[in-house]
Every structure is written in structure tokens, then in C-alpha cells.
Design a protein around this nucleic acid. Structure first.
Length: 367
DNA sequence: GAAATTTGACCTTG
DNA sequence: CAAGGTCAAATTTC
């Protein structure tokens, strides 16, 4: 298919980015007065911008390698071969048509493991919580294996998306406890969640009640390959300006952004894999982040994931307070269960906290 | 009974 | 061939 030239690519990206910024700002200005139906509409507008930007990035300019897409509230995985133009005429329905073409867990990707987009992140849990594993990332995972890895003290656990079969979702995750610091978990994500779009027509069941909503403190940082949270931060930093042309390009062609946080109301109701970031609380446009865990009685090997980010580009994030501290080299942001989404945006726009390499995490959820 | 986890066997990769 | 990754039957949990 054809792809945009660099000029077209940049122009379109800028236009879409600006449109999204304005929509976000509008949401900020109107947060206190927005009716639920208006909030929903605003979410949809932002969603449309996100999709358009994503598609644009995957197609990319002719002269340039496929840029890594911006982190999305809803991870989706269009392939370069998707037959989408960059003329801005894309509709939601068009976008959904991409899925069957690329979402083949059992085709080439399964034969060549390396073809899967892979990235890692490290999650540190707060020892005071006594929890054995990092929090849920908003997706529903099913453990399918565990293996002792040479040179490590702890076994590695293998998870795949619960909707692998029902929605042909290829996302996988490995969880490895750190030898050096048992409170640190290294999460390796492989593949991206495609169950979210498939779920538009057939939403999968809600969170398993087995996942207990618990308070936790955990720290969160990323290695150089992980661009999820810090990219998200970048996109909203400083006047919400987005630098789409500075996105790094990974070894993979496809987006690594699959693991997104669960955003939910403070009721503890969890929204699973499909549209985790689009879950809109009736009372909070920007929502809140609710980490959840697997059974608290799980063994050491039975960790669940932590979020790859605590926010998304729609501004669906947990509202942090400003008592960030640096602990053990891992940034920690105390989160409060404030009902003010504005406070969260202020946090996001804080230049200090929005360094592109800034590892961030949260502590004190629900405290 | 359905869904999730465990775990040994098997497959893939380097 | 060894190590990592996945499968699938058995088991556990809800």
C-alpha cells in the first residue's frame, strides 16, 4: 500500500496531535461541569485521535522506518501491511477491519518467537505490603507455564492473554523475580493485545472475582527499551505538546504497547483487557487506576503483572499527589485517591515529573 | 461444572 | 544438545 511522504506524515501527525491536545485541554477545562454523556463523547473524540495517530505511525513516511507508535490507551496492533490510507479518511469501522489481517497468533509470529514485539519493565513492590507479586496491569492473564531459568534463583512464569482463543489475542507476558532484589519483578511482554478491538462487538467477561483489589505500594521503572509510561508522559507534558518524530524505533515493527493499566472507579470494579483505558467512571472523567492482584495466597511463582504504565493518553490516570520521593533509585509517586482529575493532569504537566526517562510508579493506592 | 493453575513432557532455538 | 518456551492433562479453586 502507499504510505505518506515525510512531509505529509509530519503534517498529519501535527494536526492530529494538536486536535488531541485541544480536546484534552477542553476536558480539563470542563471537567467539573461535564455531564457523563459529554465525558463519553470527549473520550470518543480522543479515541479517534489516538487511532488516527496510531495508524499514521504504523504506516509511517516512505523514507523512514516504521516508527514506534505512541502509547495508547488501548493497545492495538495494526501491521504495516494494513491497507489504510493516510488521508485522514479513516473511520472507526475501517480501523476495526485491520484486526483480522494482522491478528494471527498462530501464523508466522508463533513460528518465529523473535518476530513478536518484546519489551521489559521492572516493577518493585513495597515490602510493607507483604504482597508477593506486582499488581495487575489491567489485562487478564492466564498462566500457562513456569520454568526454572538457569542462573536465577526464582522460576519464570509464563502468562498469556485470557482471550487468546476467544479474541485471538497474542499478548504474552513473562514474570521473573529479581535475584538481587526479591521485591523487584521483571516483566517481559511479548506481543500486543488485540483483544480490545475484537471485544467491541463481544466484550469479554469482567474481571475475575478472584483478583482481589488490594492496597499496595509498588515502584515502577523501565529499561531503555520500554517506552510506554515515559512516552505517555511525554505526550502530555509541557502544554501537552507531542513530539511524535522523536519516538524511538524498536527492533520490532509492531507496537510493544500492550500492557495498559486498569482504570476504574474507586469502587474497585476492575475493567479487564478490552478497552481498559476507556473505562470511564461516571463521576470521574479521567478515572482512577486500580491495581489488582491475583490471589493473595499465590505462590512466589504465581505473580501477576504490574502495569506498564499508570496512565494513558486520554488522561485516564490515577491522580497522584506531589509527594514523590526517590527511593533506591526507583521513583515513587504517592498516589492518593483524590476525586480530582485535574490534580492528575497537573501532575502530568509537571515538567519535573515528565522527563522522558523518568521512571515512575505509585505508592499508597487507596490509602 | 467452569475456569484457572500446576507441572511434566514436548518443541523450538541457538 | 542445553536452555528457554509452550502444550496439555491433572489438579485446584471458585
Amino acid at each position: 500500500m502507499e504510505s505518506a511522504t515525510s512531509w505529509e506524515y509530519n503534517s498529519l501527525t501535527n494536526e492530529l496531535t494538536q486536535g488531541r491536545e485541544h480536546a484534552i485541554q477542553l476536558g480539563v477545562h470542563l471537567t467539573s461541569t461535564l455531564l457523563p454523556q459529554h465525558q463519553d463523547l470527549l473520550q470518543k473524540i480522543l479515541f479517534s485521535y489516538e487511532k488516527s495517530l496510531l495508524i499514521l505511525k504504523w504506516n509511517g513516511p516512505i523514507e523512514q522506518p516504521q516508527p514506534q507508535p505512541q502509547p495508547l490507551a488501548m493497545p492495538i496492533t495494526p501491521t504495516p501491511e494494513s491497507s489504510l490510507s493516510v488521508d485522514g479518511s479513516l473511520h472507526t469501522d475501517d480501523f476495526s477491519k485491520i484486526i483480522p489481517a494482522h491478528n494471527e497468533c498462530y501464523s508466522n509470529a508463533s513460528k518465529k518467537r523473535k518476530a513478536m514485539p518484546t519489551w521489559t519493565e521492572k516493577v518493585k513492590i513495597n515490602p510493607h505490603t507483604g504482597l508477593e507479586g506486582p499488581g495487575d496491569d489491567g489485562y487478564s492473564w492466564r498462566k500457562y507455564g513456569q520454568k526454572d531459568i538457569q542462573g536465577t534463583k526464582h522460576p519464570r512464569s509464563y502468562y498469556r492473554c485470557t482471550y487468546r482463543h476467544s479474541h485471538n489475542c497474542c499478548a504474552n507476558k513473562q514474570v521473573q523475580r529479581s535475584d538481587d532484589d526479591p521485591s523487584v519483578f521483571e516483566l517481559t511482554y511479548k506481543g500486543t493485545h488485540t483483544c480490545i478491538l475484537a471485544s467491541q462487538s463481544a466484550p469479554p467477561p469482567a474481571t475475575s472475582p478472584k483478583k482481589k483489589e488490594l492496597k499496595l505500594n509498588y515502584h515502577h521503572h523501565f529499561n531503555n527499551e520500554s517506552l510506554q509510561a515515559d512516552q505517555m508522559l511525554m505526550h502530555l507534558k509541557a502544554n501537552l505538546r507531542v513530539k511524535t518524530d522523536e519516538l524511538e524505533i524498536t527492533k520490532e515493527e509492531r507496537s510493544p504497547f500492550s500492557a495498559l493499566p486498569t482504570f476504574s472507579s474507586m469502587t474497585g470494579k476492575n475493567h479487564e483487557c478490552p478497552f481498559p483505558a476507556l473505562a470511564v467512571d461516571d463521576h470521574h472523567f479521567l478515572g482512577t487506576y486500580t491495581p489488582s492482584f491475583m490471589s493473595s495466597g499465590s505462590s512466589e511463582s504465581n505473580y501477576f503483572s504490574a502495569s506498564s504504565s499508570q496512565m494513558n493518553e486520554y488522561g485516564n490516570f490515577h491522580a497522584f499527589n506531589h509527594s514523590e520521593t526517590e527511593q533506591n533509585g526507583i521513583f515513587s509517586a504517592n498516589a492518593s485517591s483524590t476525586n480530582s482529575p485535574i490534580a492528575g493532569l497537573e501532575y502530568l504537566m509537571d515538567p519535573v515529573a515528565l522527563d522522558s526517562n523518568f521512571p515512575f510508579g505509585t505508592t499508597g493506592f487507596f490509602s
